[in-house]
């Protein structure tokens, strides 16, 4: 309370001196006006600084514009502006208190609609429940479905697959068309790379693969990985894609064993194939090659979990908690730390 009253006092003094300057000096001169304006301006600014400290915090933000507004008022409308600002503060403070003592109102519980229920903190869950709601108007559902074409395949393909069983044929067919297009793009790229690989092998020989062969092999591993990552393949097809990607990874690693990212991918592929020991070795190699632990440790922790080594998993999770760069993993980390 000390600071505002100090500011207020200074403001009042300055304002008084601004007016008295006009009376003391020759009231017709420009310098009198200038002198008045400077003093009045300073007084307005000080008053605003005092006033903002008295304002309830909710009204005091954003700080600078509020400050300028109040200073501007007092500056532009001499005396009345000054008084107005003070009156405003008084009203705001009393209004806030009145709101506080308003009695509680009782409201009806809304009817539970499972489609409104969000299943997690991720954005797509809202869309999933909307698309899955067969009672929503057809045009809006079609719109929502069409909007998915601008969403990455990883997010959209599970959603599209969900509505393949929709009772409405239009929805089913549109979803199928979109899924098919996504999948076709990757499979056509795979076909092209297979051709380029065959050409490379023919030109450069199989024993000592040259740059074309190796580039094709690397891209094939990428593309099969893309099928898995975008969840385009399930069940046996997924296993097949994992095996293919891993096979091409192996060839790349034979010629570039120090590629950290490829080592990590190989680890994840072996992990998916349930070859846990080999996967572990690949993860450690990726770490050893300088990949940041935030990228490797989550998978390693999952591996520990799959191995049944829960102490190891918890240890790795606590190690991860020192990093603040994993917002999506945070709940998982918190869970393991809490145990």
């Amino acid at each position: 309370m000390l600071l505002p009253s100090k500011f207020g006092l200074y403001a009042l003094t300055l304002e008084l001196s601004a007016w008295s300057a006009g009376a003391l000096l020759d009231s017709q001169s420009d310098s009198t006006l200038l002198w008045y304006l400077v003093l009045h301006g300073a007084a307005s600014l000080l008053l605003a600084s005092a006033a903002i400290l008295l304002l309830p915090p909710a009204f005091a933000r954003p700080r600078r514009p509020v400050l300028l507004l109040m200073a501007g008022c007092s500056f532009a409308v001499p005396i009345f502006g000054f008084v107005g600002v003070l009156a405003g503060i008084v009203i705001l403070r009393t209004y806030r208190y009145r709101e506080k003592i308003a009695p509680f109102e009782s409201t009806q519980l809304p009817e539970f609609d499972p489609h409104q229920h969000t299943t997690g903190g991720f954005r797509q869950s809202g869309l999933r429940s909307f698309l899955g709601n067969t009672k929503a108007p057809m045009a809006s559902r079609l719109g929502a479905l069409v909007a998915l074409q601008y969403v990455s395949g990883r997010v959209s393909s599970p959603l599209l697959r969900d509505v393949l069983t929709d009772p409405s044929e239009d929805i089913r067919l549109l979803a199928y068309g979109m899924l098919d297009n996504q999948e076709k793009r990757i499979n056509q790229a795979i076909d092209e790379e297979l051709r380029s690989l065959a050409e490379g092998v023919k030109l450069e020989g199989e024993a000592q693969p040259g740059p074309q062969t190796l580039a094709a092999v690397r891209r094939l591993s990428d593309l099969y990985w893309e099928l898995i990552y975008q969840e385009m393949v399930q069940g046996d097809l997924r296993t097949h894609a994992v095996a293919e990607s891993s096979r091409y990874c192996d060839i790349v690693l034979r010629h570039a064993p120090d590629d950290a990212a490829i080592n990590l991918r190989q680890g994840r592929l072996l992990h998916a194939l349930n070859q846990l020991e080999k996967a572990e070795a690949a993860y450690f190699r990726a770490l050893g090659l300088g990949l940041p632990s935030t990228r490797v440790l989550p998978y390693l922790a999952e591996l520990r979990f799959d191995q049944g080594d829960f102490v190891g998993a918890r240890y790795l999770m606590s190690e991860l908690s020192q990093w603040s760069s994993l917002p999506r993993l945070r709940p998982v980390i918190e869970y393991w730390k809490a145990q």
Partner: peptide, 11 residues
């Protein structure tokens, strides 16, 4: 042709 390629890529 896509279908034949798919047969090939699935072995």
């Amino acid at each position: 042709q896509d279908c034949r390629n798919l047969v090939h890529s699935l072995g």
